[in-house]
């Protein structure tokens, strides 16, 4: 009678131990498997990007810069004002450029044209460019998403 009680207690403990071990292995192996094929995460929001110094750009010049995964376009207009946009054409995702001779933002792929406010004014682009905010601190230029 005493022996039966001991056996049943030992069996119960073994099940408990086995279950705990299986859980432990699961806890180790599952994250490892998940790390092999991680889920696609959305890009983290960018708060601000340092683009350079004011003196880097003369009036009527522009500069492409990295804004997260996307290209950004910083323009210093002939009046000296700084403007920035996501430099991806809203037609077929080509990178746009500033044409100082025409005072427009131009896409070489299909001759799409935007004015210096980013508004699509000619060609196939269906929407304006995404504008960015330009902040000047001392001599440095920072660009951030438009609030």
């Amino acid at each position: 009678m005493e022996g039966n009680k001991t056996n049943s207690r030992r069996g119960f403990l073994n099940v408990l131990l086995g279950g705990t071990l299986a859980t432990f292995f699961g806890m180790v192996i599952y994250p490892v498997i998940r790390l092999m094929e991680p889920p696609k995460l959305p890009e983290a929001d960018i708060s601000s990007v340092a683009v350079g110094k004011i003196t880097d750009l003369k009036p009527d010049q522009s500069k492409l810069f990295k804004f997260g995964r996307q290209p950004g376009l910083l323009i210093r207009t002939s009046e000296g004002e700084f403007k920035a946009f996501i430099a991806t054409c809203t037609h077929l995702d080509c990178t746009v450029q500033y044409r100082s001779d025409m005072k427009i933002i131009w896409c070489a792929c299909h001759n799409g044209q935007y004015d210096l406010n980013g508004l699509n004014v000619a060609g196939p682009p269906p929407r304006p460019l995404t504008p960015l905010e330009v902040h000047i601190k001392d001599d440095a230029i920072f660009v951030s998403p438009k609030a």
């Binding site: 790390l35 092999m36 094929e37 991680p38 696609k40 890009e43 990295k66 997260g68 995964r69």
Partner: peptide
């Protein structure tokens, strides 16, 4: 590389 979790934005 991106699908497998390596940062490749550059």
């Amino acid at each position: 590389a991106e699908r497998k979790g390596v940062g490749v934005s550059d």
